[in-house]
Design a binder for these strands. Structure first.
Length: 427
RNA sequence: GGAGAGAUGGCUGAGUGGUCGAAAGCGCUCCCCUGCUAAGGGAGUAAGGGUUAAAAGCCCUUCGAGGGUUCGAAUCCCUCUCUCUCCGCCA
């Protein structure tokens, strides 16, 4: 959520900033509502103040044994007026909140202009895509060669956009997850955290998936409903909802492995081949909770932690800064890390690292106590994949493939594979 | 799933219709005093919001959540959630 004070004072500037995303914020309508809110709130509060004063004097009169009838008469219609003002205020505030919850975060000034991923700005590259002496296969064909990747079986169970994996391929994904958790906890200082995969609506309001993106989520039929998390960011970040973190506990750095569930509504026809885009996938997620002054440095650090995984796996990648139109709802700046996929001859997203500044914190009332002032301040939240395990598996398969369709195990994963050094064909 | 108990400020814990944002203790902060010392004295110490350019001040809200009764609710009524104990069931 954007600071309502900023909206009131600089609605036109906010509208201009959001226009970079292609988002239309009707500042005039907002300000008109806000104007009404102000006068109504002043009215309601002064009525309430009047009532409090009267009630107090009734109490005192009664204590002195005086006749309170005339006093009661004097406040006769107060209750009704107050009720009326309250109801109108409540209605107005909920209208304003609806608008505010629908506004995306303001972009950082350095975010490049642009409408979609074609306009993203490459920041750096690491590694060189390998030259193959044979025609590189994609992970679907490699999975077919080993017989360990089964889309038919998955379709039988769950329909499209699911995968079944067997044997060493399933183990390879598990190895990737263990490896990533180990690196982040032992080398990068994260606290390993196990979280629920099913959350209530409040958590999703906190991180910004709701109310706007409900269609992207899987929802249960309970009343009230539960939602399957689309990312561990939801569970991890909301841990500080409605709390004040002490300075000695900052910064907070959390890592969790969870499955992620996305309905992928609206992406029909995109990445239908293979397991690039699934309804269910595994991901290791990194979350930072930091003082506001530190969040941009933290974004660089977090991104470097995700990159370290790909470097240890010796997977070539590039880092791009997302353009205005491609940056997510809650983020002020996002780096995507794109791993090289020989089967597609393309860099594809494997991690997305975002600084959400105080946007999520304001929705969550997540604060920290600044020792300089002794006062609570909104903290800044960051999240990034460190990295997406399903896509990392694809990247390993395609980058480590050999002429016969077998797949070598990356050096870094050998300790996790129980002596296995390659995944052969025809398992 | 069944039975019972509970939810109050950073913590412990009083408060059962009126001047209670809330006693007391602990903790914490500041000040004072003190050289028989793991002592004494004093003051302060919640969060959110409105008004304001901002601050001060003033005002509003908050005693698990949401409704209700009342001039007035931490206190009474209803619904819900969570925690604890016991039983059952289960991983």
């Amino acid at each position: 959520m954007i600071d309502p004070k900023l909206l009131r004072q600089s609605a036109a500037d906010v509208a201009k900033g959001l226009a970079r995303r292609g988002f239309k914020f009707d500042a005039d309508t907002y300000l008109a509502l806000e104007d009404k809110r102000k006068s109504l709130q002043v009215e309601a509060e002064s009525l309430r103040s009047e009532r409090n004063t009267s009630s107090k004097s009734i109490g005192m009169a009664k204590a002195r044994g005086e006749d309170i009838e005339p006093l009661l008469k004097a406040v006769n219609d107060l209750g009704e007026r107050l009720e009326n003002a309250d109801a109108r205020l409540k209605e107005l505030q909920s209208q304003l909140l609806d608008i505010e919850l629908g506004l995306p975060n303001l972009l950082h000034a350095d975010v490049p202009d642009g409408v979609d991923e074609a306009d993203n700005a490459e920041v750096r590259r690491w590694g060189t895509p390998a030259e193959f002496s044979f025609k590189a296969l994609d992970h679907v064909d490699l999975g077919g060669a080993s017989g360990l990747l089964d889309f038919d079986g998955a379709a039988k169970l769950s329909g499209s956009r699911f995968a079944v994996m067997h044997g060493p391929l399933a183990r390879l994904q598990r190895a990737l997850i263990q490896f990533m958790l180990d690196v982040h906890t032992s080398e990068h200082g994260y606290r390993e955290t196990y979280v629920p995969y099913i959350v209530q609506a409040d958590a999703l309001y906190g991180t910004g998936q709701l109310p706007k993106f409900e269609a992207d989520l899987f929802k249960t039929q309970d009343d009230p409903p539960f939602y399957l998390i689309p990312t561990a960011e939801v569970s991890l970040t909301n841990l500080v909802r409605d709390s004040i973190v002490e300075a000695k506990d900052m910064p907070v750095r959390l890592v969790a492995h969870t499955p992620c569930f996305r309905s992928e509504a609206g992406s029909y026809g995109r990445d239908t081949r293979g397991m690039i885009r699934q309804h269910q996938f595994e991901k290791v997620e990194l979350v930072h909770l930091v003082p506001g002054s530190d969040s941009f440095a933290a974004l660089e650090l977090l991104t470097s932690h995700a990159e370290a995984i790909l470097q240890k796996l010796e997977l070539p990648y590039r880092v791009v800064k997302l353009c205005a139109g491609d940056t997510g709802f809650a983020a002020t700046t996002t780096y995507d890390i794109e791993v090289w996929l020989p089967g597609q001859s393309a860099y594809r997203e494997i991690s997305s690292c975002s600084n959400c500044t105080d946007f999520q914190a304001r929705r969550m009332q997540a604060r920290w106590r600044n020792p300089e002032t002794g006062k609570p301040e909104l903290l800044h939240t960051l999240n990034g994949s460190g990295v997406a395990a399903g896509r990392a598996l694809i990247a390993v398969m395609e980058n480590y493939q050999q002429a016969d369709g077998s797949i070598r195990i990356p050096q870094a994963l050998l300790p996790y594979m129980g002596g296995l050094t390659e995944i052969a064909v025809n398992n």
